[in-house]
């Protein structure tokens, strides 16, 4: 009984919708950016090879920097996500404790 009502209590809480929306916005933005950067590789290779071949320093060209850069960019996306999620974690923990208090409170009320 107590468990069943807590799901509803959290789900109906206005902060839950905000939490879901925040996480979704963060995840979809990061997904979109990282996939765009990654899928640009085959497009550059096929349609703008001269861009990747442009020499920057000695034999090192844009292609090498762009490809190796994917690793640093990917790592940055991942670290940024983990860092931003700390806020969302805190929000979710607050929501859970608030909802459990109110559910317990409701059940202790005399009818």
């Amino acid at each position: 009984m107590k468990q069943d009502s807590i799901w509803g209590a959290i789900f109906e809480h206005p902060n839950f919708a905000i939490l879901v929306k925040r996480r979704r916005r963060l995840v979809s933005t990061l997904m979109l950016i990282s996939m765009a950067v990654y899928f640009a590789i085959p497009l550059f290779s096929a349609y703008f090879p001269e861009f990747l071949s442009y020499k920057i320093y000695g034999a090192i060209n844009v292609g090498l920097v762009y490809l190796v850069g994917q690793y640093f960019f990917g790592a940055a996306i991942a670290i940024f996500y983990a860092w931003r999620l700390k806020n969302i974690d805190a929000m979710s923990a607050a929501l859970v404790s608030e909802a459990s208090v109110s559910v317990n409170h409701d059940q202790n009320q005399p009818h």
């Binding site: 995840v27 990654y38 290779s45 990747l52 190796v68 994917q70 690793y71 991942a78 983990a82």
Partner: peptide, 21 residues
């Protein structure tokens, strides 16, 4: 050469959906 790197990057980028989703 360079195309070998292009091939392997996908195996790394694939962890972004694993982490995010």
């Amino acid at each position: 050469g360079l195309d070998g790197i292009t091939y392997v990057i996908g195996f790394f980028v694939s962890f972004i959906p694993v982490l995010l989703l």
